[in-house]
Amino acid sequence: MPKVGRREEILNIACKLFSQKGYHGTTIRDISDACGILSGSLYAHINTKEDLLFEITDRGAQAFLESLRPIVESEATAEEKLKRALKAHIQVIEQNLEAATVFFHEWKALTNGRRDTIQEKRDQYEALWGRILSEGAAAGEFADLDEKFARLLILSVGNWLYQWYRPGGDLSAEEISERFADMMLKGFRVKKGEGKP
């Protein structure tokens, strides 16, 4: 197993603390103590505490985007894309539970344009979900949905997972995504006799 670099170790520890205590509840002293170094020595690796928060949230935003983009750009049906996309979303959370907690809960603490950078990536991510829903409606796979609320429903369900999902529970992340997708698709599908004229 490759040795984790010092900065990466600091990021991992900061991520854990931010997820447990919140960004504002975590001090530089907390981070340096957990790293086993003096607070002054921490500044040899970072400029500010916010640098750590930005890097954690930016990595999170990138992980979500990179998991979804190839699915949206594939030749699959909209229904299959939705299933795969929800699975990918939930797997990103499962594999990065502490970072996902920080991403969803703490990103608004960012300042100086950094919040705008994350917001832009969140907007791109939502737009990709919107493409799946639009394609499904255009192809007659989905009913004439209120796209905004359908997107909010999907992301609210997926994003809330960090609050209650625990690895090793009764259901795997994949099983959870399949159950959510099946429930949503029953509501999204065009009912017989209701297709486009």
Rank of each mutant, 00 (worst) to 15 (best):
E66L: 15
K81F: 11
G113P: 07
G40E: 05
S74C: 12
N96G: 12
F54V: 05
G113D: 05
R114W: 08
A78V: 12
A78H: 06
A100M: 05
L82Q: 01
R59L: 11
R29Q: 08
L65P: 00
F64T: 05
I56W: 00
E94P: 01
T77Q: 10
G25T: 10
F54D: 02
I46H: 02
A61C: 07
T26C: 10
Y43T: 08
G22V: 13
L42T: 09
E50V: 04
A78T: 08
E79L: 10
T111N: 07
E50A: 06
G36V: 08
P70E: 11
F103P: 02
R59E: 13
E66Q: 10
Q95F: 04
V102N: 03
F103S: 03
G40D: 06
A100I: 08
I71Q: 00
S74D: 08
R84V: 15
N112Q: 11
Q95T: 07
D51F: 10
Q91L: 13
L110G: 04
E55C: 14
L42Q: 00
F104M: 15
F104E: 01
T77I: 11
S41M: 04
I90Y: 02
S19P: 03
E80S: 12
H24E: 13
H89P: 04
S41T: 11
K83W: 07
V92R: 00
E66Y: 09
A88M: 08
F104V: 14
S19D: 02
Q91I: 13
D33F: 15
A34W: 11
I71N: 01
H105Q: 08
Q91C: 09
E98C: 03
F104Y: 15
E50N: 04
Y23G: 12
Y43R: 03
I46T: 04
E73V: 02
G60H: 00
F103K: 01
